[in-house]
Simulated scan of single mutants.
Amino acid sequence: MPTPQHTTTRTVHVDAGTIDLTEEELVAEFEPEWTLNGLVEADPNDGSARILCGQEIGRIAVTAQLWDGAPPLEPDGWQDVAEVPVSWHSAFIDFATTGTAVDPAGRLTLPGPGDYRIRVHGRNRDDGDPRDAGDPVEEYLIQVWPAPPVTPDLWKATSRTAALWRTPGE
Rank of each mutant, 00 (worst) to 15 (best):
117 R>M: 01
57 I>P: 00
164 L>W: 15
125 R>E: 11
139 E>D: 14
111 P>G: 13
1 M>Q: 03
157 A>K: 02
80 D>G: 03
34 W>S: 10
3 T>N: 13
69 G>Q: 15
123 R>M: 08
53 C>T: 15
166 R>D: 00
117 R>N: 03
88 W>R: 13
6 H>I: 04
8 T>Y: 04
17 G>M: 01
148 P>E: 15
22 T>C: 13
62 V>P: 00
104 P>E: 12
92 F>Y: 14
12 V>I: 09
133 A>G: 04
104 P>T: 10
96 A>D: 11
10 R>I: 04
161 T>R: 15
64 A>F: 01
41 E>V: 13
31 E>M: 08
151 T>E: 15
121 H>E: 07
125 R>M: 15
118 I>E: 03
76 D>P: 02
60 I>Q: 06
170 E>P: 11
11 T>M: 05
114 G>K: 12
39 L>V: 03
82 A>S: 13
99 G>M: 07
9 T>W: 05
107 R>D: 05
147 A>E: 15
86 V>G: 00
26 L>K: 02
115 D>E: 14
89 H>I: 09
123 R>C: 04
111 P>E: 11
133 A>Y: 12
16 A>M: 09
155 W>E: 05
82 A>V: 02
88 W>K: 05
63 T>N: 08
140 Y>F: 15
75 P>G: 08
160 R>T: 13
53 C>Q: 08
92 F>R: 09
155 W>F: 14
85 P>V: 02
138 E>A: 01
2 P>K: 05
157 A>L: 08
161 T>Y: 06
21 L>N: 07
103 D>M: 04
102 V>D: 07
23 E>W: 03
19 I>M: 07
157 A>I: 07
13 H>D: 07
96 A>R: 06
152 P>W: 01
117 R>I: 01
148 P>K: 14
162 A>H: 09
21 L>I: 08
146 P>A: 11
142 I>G: 11
61 A>Q: 14
63 T>W: 00
74 E>C: 06
146 P>H: 11
6 H>W: 10
93 I>F: 01
35 T>Q: 11
17 G>E: 08
165 W>P: 04
109 T>K: 13
46 D>R: 14
154 L>R: 12
126 D>A: 01
47 G>K: 04
86 V>P: 06
35 T>D: 15
3 T>H: 11
15 D>Y: 04
104 P>Q: 06
120 V>F: 03
127 D>C: 13
165 W>T: 01
44 P>S: 05
27 V>T: 15
75 P>R: 12
168 P>Q: 10
90 S>C: 09
159 S>G: 10
8 T>C: 01
152 P>H: 03
122 G>L: 06
99 G>C: 04
160 R>V: 07
114 G>A: 06
7 T>N: 08
112 G>E: 06
25 E>N: 11
59 R>N: 12
139 E>H: 11
158 T>V: 12
153 D>Q: 14
6 H>F: 12
130 P>Y: 06
41 E>Y: 11
90 S>D: 14
